[in-house]
Simulated assay, not measured.
Amino acid sequence: MEQAPWYLIDDVAQLDTPALVLYPDRVKHNIALLKSMIGDVSRLRPHVKTNKSREASRLLLEAGIRKFKCATIAEAEMLAMIGAPDVLLAYQPNEAKMHRLLALMKAYPDTHFSCLVDTITTATTLSELAVAAGLVVPVYIDLNVGMNRTGIAPGGAVLTLYSELDQLPGVRPVGLHAYDGHLRNSDLAIRTSECDAAFWPVQLLSETLTARGFAKPVIVIGGSPTFPIHAKRPDVECSPGTFIYWDKGYQTILPEQGFLPAALVVSRVISLPESSKICVDLGHKSIAPEGDLLSRVTFLNAPELKAVGQSEEHLVLEAGEGHSYKVGDVFYGIPNHVCPTVALYERGYTIENGLTTGEWLAVSRDRVITI
Score class of each variant (00 low, 15 high):
D118W: 04
P201G: 05
D292L: 14
V316L: 08
S186G: 02
H337E: 15
I141Y: 12
M78I: 09
L104E: 02
L116F: 12
V117T: 15
L104A: 05
F113G: 00
I82K: 01
A302W: 14
P46C: 05
T341E: 12
A197M: 04
K326T: 11
H314D: 15
A32T: 13
I369L: 15
I229H: 02
G249L: 05
V266P: 10
N336I: 06
Q167Y: 09
Q92R: 05
S364G: 08
I369A: 08
V218I: 14
P18E: 10
K69F: 13
N94P: 08
L264I: 14
T210L: 12
V117G: 07
S271M: 11
A56K: 00
G333R: 10
V117P: 07
F68C: 00
I219H: 07
L15T: 04
D247T: 05
P225N: 10
E95D: 08
K248M: 13
L204P: 00
S224W: 03
T210E: 15
S364D: 15
V21L: 11
D142P: 01
E318L: 12
T252M: 05
G39S: 07
A307F: 06
P217H: 05
E62F: 07
A32F: 10
N144R: 00
K52F: 15
D16M: 08
V27G: 00
S57Q: 02
K285G: 08
V117I: 15
W6S: 05
T17Y: 14
G64R: 01
A262D: 10
I9A: 08
P154F: 11
G213C: 05
V131A: 01
R54P: 00
A307V: 00
H112A: 06
L315Q: 09
G181Q: 12
K49W: 15
D366I: 03
V48S: 02
I38M: 05
A157R: 14
I82S: 01
W6E: 07
T17M: 09
